[in-house]
Design a protein around this nucleic acid. Structure first.
Length: 673
DNA sequence: TCGGGAAGGACCC
DNA sequence: GGCCAGGGTCCTTCCTAC
């Protein structure tokens, strides 16, 4: 989409920087005396013309479209509509009011410029200097001395340098921050054993019991706790005390740094407090929501939420409207929530933009390894793998696949991630990320998921893995040079591997030589899997005329574990989707009946390739039944994980896919108005 | 009509 | 003089299969 709608001149006239808002043009604690216009101008001058800037303009244009859409919807509301929604809103507000609980005392604590303070503590020579923890690319935290210049977290380092020429940079050291964080948590524990840590430097404490048991006020607890933190860590923090968490968080920011603010547990005090409170101070209301509320309904303080309650109910979803009205009433969480299960786990890396597929697959392998480490550290497996891509133009795309069973091995992750990335190629990227969601605790792994058993299955064949944990796969360019950026291993290969190693203890049955896998006689995919199929009447029926008599005795000596696995596989209803019906099936429309390789619906092109592979395999087998010709790893790789740019049916991208592009969406909506 | 999956985006530090 | 703009998580919305 063109960024024309967001040209600076339109937004700011002769002062275009005024309309260029980024996350870091907003004031943070310690930035009160900063010349905001000067900072904005520097940021604008350093940004304009860059790809990042263009992308920001594009996003800004989308927000403007959303705002226009909401305004148009607002204009269509009749008096009757407004009257109706007023009643809805009043009912909702009564319900919310009835839920108000003033019996709890919550304390929110926030360490002051945590990373920068820790670095200064460790290296006193940094004291008093404007300090940024981060790099030229990104600042994670700025000291209060640096904030006076307009430098703050989430700002690129090079802009920080421009704003503050003497800015000192320190690389982040998370082990150090974790250590200090643990010290603070020991203190929190004494006041609330069930405290809620939201990050390394922030926590919520329910201090109701402490206040009652010791007969002291919330203010006294805050003073004491802050003193204890200082004594035990050498660091300062700020605190806010209020009847709920939402307000407590706002309060902790008021007298930052090294201060506290107490709001009494009194309804009137709460309502007065929120009456002039800017909505942007509320956690959950960011740049976009603030703009929408301000520009569509003229809301800039929490109290105005109540005045515009009918419009909030008319224009926003029920959940959003409820949230906005709660904010207007100064309501927030008062009960300690059940331990929240994390919903996803991810890692991503930014790098110099490149379209070199070797490099990209290399980075993908590293990401898969990191994600695996994180999953395994937490004892988690997941079902949905999402690949995140940021193009050189800063466009963000995500592509996801849901596997049949839970996975957390690097090999499994890489198989799916590679498929997802291949479907997007070619493209120039500056960031890649992998996220695993639909998580499941490994300890509770009593499910009969296919993947679980396949995982055990693969684990038994881990001896021949290379340093990346994958089989070495060689591919060459036309000059015969090795151009393989990474070791990509398909499940087909694992199955070949395992079929050899566990079908017989005779190591001569299977060995690696010069990066080629030699499979003597018929101990290959077809014979192995036919053995598996033999054991299941569902598949027997489905296979019909499939040749089952070419199974060698050694292949019949199946590992009991594998046998169970295959029985599990075949316990699902089989559906045929092969190019050669009667030979290959997709069990439960998911698992290849011949080798167990998983390809979910939607990977039709890959399925076709996979079916062709089995077809070729069986043809080759017929041709070479007496020749005992070895099949090279390279050839297997070509078949099972082809990098040939066949005319793939791409996974739908945002531009051509099932989702209506936002501009089309609004055009469609406008038509209906 | 409903639930789950996919994609995008908002928000946080 | 050109280059330099994070990482992680959750929620909302849309689509499609049932």
């Amino acid at each position: 989409m063109s960024a024309a709608a967001g040209t600076p001149a339109e937004g700011g006239g002769d002062r275009p920087w005024q309309s260029y808002h980024t996350a870091y043009t907003n004031a943070k604690a310690g930035m009160e005396g900063v010349d905001k216009e000067k900072v904005q101008k520097v940021i604008y001058e350093m940004s304009k013309g860059s790809k990042y800037f263009e992308n920001e303009q594009r996003k800004e244009a989308l927000t403007k479209q959303k705002i226009e859409y909401l305004r148009a919807q607002c204009a269509t509301l009749t008096d009757n509509d407004i009257s109706h929604f007023q009643k809805v809103a009043e009912k909702k507000m009564l319900e919310l009011e009835a839920s108000r609980d003033l019996s709890k005392i919550w304390l929110h604590t926030d360490m002051d410029a945590f990373y920068a303070a820790v670095e200064t503590l460790e290296d006193p020579s940094l004291k008093g200097k404007p300090l940024a923890v981060g790099s030229m690319s990104m600042i994670a935290t700025a000291s209060y001395e640096a904030r006076k210049f307009g430098v703050r977290a989430a700002m690129p380092g090079f802009i920080g340098c421009k704003l503050c020429p003497g800015l000192v940079f320190v690389r982040p050291n998370f082990e150090r921050y974790t250590h200090y964080s643990e010290l603070t948590r020991k203190v929190f524990q004494r006041y609330d054993p069930n405290f809620i840590a939201t990050s390394l430097d922030e926590a919520y404490l329910n201090i109701t019991n402490v206040c009652i048991e010791r007969g002291i006020t919330g203010e006294e607890v805050a003073t004491e706790l802050r003193a204890a933190i200082h004594q035990e860590t050498g660091l300062t923090c700020s605190a806010g005390v209020a009847p709920n968490r939402m307000i407590a968080k706002v309060c902790s920011d008021i007298n930052k740094p090294n201060g506290q603010f107490i709001l009494p547990n009194d309804r009137e005090a709460v309502l007065t407090f929120v009456s002039t409170l800017p909505i942007r101070k509320i956690g959950g209301i960011g740049k976009v929501t603030e703009q929408m509320l301000r520009q569509v309904l003229g809301i800039s303080t929490c109290q105005e939420m109540l005045q515009k309650a009918a419009f909030l109910c008319a224009l926003f979803s029920e959940g959003s409207a409820d949230f906005f009205l709660s904010v207007g009433l100064g309501l927030g969480g008062t009960e300690t929530p059940e331990q929240r299960q994390r919903k996803s786990i991810s890692c991503e890396r930014t790098f110099t933009a490149t379209s070199d597929s070797s490099l990209l697959f290399d980075k993908l392998a590293n990401l898969a390894e990191n994600l695996t480490d994180d999953l395994q550290k937490e004892g988690l497996k997941g079902k949905t793998l999402t690949l995140k891509l940021k193009t050189a133009d800063f466009e963000v795309r995500t592509r996801a696949v849901t596997t049949r069973g839970y996975i957390n091995s690097k090999e499994d992750i890489l198989i799916y991630a590679t498929k997802l990335l291949k479907a997007e190629m070619p493209l120039s990227l500056r960031l890649m990320g992998l996220r695993m969601s639909q998580l499941h605790d490994e300890k509770d792994d009593s499910s009969t998921s296919t993947q679980k058993t396949l995982d055990i299955f693969f684990r038994s064949s881990g001896n021949d893995l290379n340093v990346n944990g994958a089989n070495v796969q060689s591919s060459t360019n036309t000059s015969g040079q090795d151009i393989s950026p990474i070791s990509v291993t398909t499940k087909d290969e694992y199955l070949v591997h395992d079929a050899g190693t566990s079908a017989s203890t005779d190591q001569q049955d299977f060995f690696v030589h010069d990066e080629s896998i030699f499979i003597p006689e018929q101990r290959n995919l077809v014979s192995y899997s036919n053995e598996a199929v033999l054991s299941n009447p569902v598949i027997d029926d489905a296979l019909g005329e499939a040749k089952l008599d070419d199974v060698t005795p050694s292949a019949k000596v199946m590992n009991a574990e594998k046998f169970d696995d295959v029985c599990q596989l075949t316990s699902h209803e089989a559906t045929a989707s092969s190019s050669k019906p009667g030979q290959q099936l997709w069990i439960d429309d998911y698992v290849c009946s011949i080798c167990g390789f998983e390809l979910p619906p939607g990977f039709e092109e890959e399925r076709q390739e996979h079916s062709d592979f089995h077809l070729a395999e069986s043809l080759q087998h017929e041709e070479t039944v007496d020749s005992k010709r070895p099949i090279s790893n390279e050839r297997l790789a070509e078949r099972s994980c082809s990098t040939t740019p066949t005319p793939k049916k791409k996974l739908k991208s945002s531009k051509e896919g099932k989702h209506i592009p936002i501009d089309a969406f609004f055009a469609k909506c406008n038509k209906n108005l």
